[in-house]
Design a protein around this nucleic acid. Sequence first.
DNA 1: TTTCTGATTTGCATCTAATGCTAATTGACA
DNA 2: TGTCAATTAGCATTAGATGCAAATCAGAAA
Lengths: 154, 154
Amino acid sequence: MRSPTELAQVFRDKQLKLKPQRQLLFSRLHQNKSHPTAESLYEIASKQMPGISLRTIYQTLGELAEMGELQLVDVGIGATRFDPNTGDHHHFVCESCRAMHDVDILTSPKMSLRRGGGFAVNEVGVVFCGRCNRCNHKQQVRSPESQAKDKASN
Amino acid sequence: MRSPTELAQVFRDKQLKLKPQRQLLFSRLHQNKSHPTAESLYEIASKQMPGISLRTIYQTLGELAEMGELQLVDVGIGATRFDPNTGDHHHFVCESCRAMHDVDILTSPKMSLRRGGGFAVNEVGVVFCGRCNRCNHKQQVRSPESQAKDKASN
DNA sequence: TTTCTGATTTGCATCTAATGCTAATTGACA
DNA sequence: TGTCAATTAGCATTAGATGCAAATCAGAAA
Ligand SMILES: [Mn+2]
Ligand SMILES: [Mn+2]
Ligand SMILES: [Zn+2]
Ligand SMILES: [Zn+2]
């Protein structure tokens, strides 16, 4: 995803308004490696802009995704994650704390794309599911509630 | 997944009752390659047993999954799919009609398992997303409503 | 065969994640 | 400064799924 300033330019060029809500999200997303959900961004954004609407978060994230600035990652467990890293990579997700980490691509794009038994393949997603080091050490499985609070970042 | 008769035995051994609802689902699931959702199984089962509850479908599918007789496949688009094929394989899903097809494993298990940047990986899921041949031919994108009706099978 | 009892089913409430809708607000430009 | 389309925010609604408790029933025991 481009830098907040570059994005601002893009938005201006498209006659889109530069509301503070957007600018805030641009900055919270830029170089964010935490793979946040809409809700987690909402919590973070609310600290700096109390009263911001969750609806706006969804709205803006949707726009950015449509513009190709964000990648949507849905691993089938919990909510959709938003990833400003639009490069070709995959993900590991901890089934205990739900933290998500990048996994640099292992499968050669050649092998993965354009093969699927004779179908037109647009996208290949690889998800590694397991336990992160941190969760592996503490024995306890943490409650889904406490998990949500992990991904503060940026 | 085992055959209906084998499953019946397993259930008896565990002092679980052999209700007709279960037997019906056993038979609708056995060797079913359509990767049905709970709802689609509900529709199918309702034809033979009007009045069967969707809650029971979810219940029974959950039990079978917990017993390792079914594989849950969640591709992040639409509902969870249930797969009686518990072998090591992956999936192609058509983003137009949502049909799901098996993709025989391409990644060597060695390469995929036990690698993810230093995490304990339990499972690797590969999802190919695109358009199936049928949808590729007809231009039109079909409505999500009409799509649901494809997966009649067994 | 009848009785008894815990397993099962079912309907309904509830939940999470997300989207639809619309009135109120506001940035940008004339 | 006024205008107006873009944007926001609040609320309703949806899809998919699970929690809960009363009613039902398979099958062991008598
Ligand atoms: Mn990533
Ligand atoms: Mn399969
Ligand atoms: Zn973890
Ligand atoms: Zn298709």
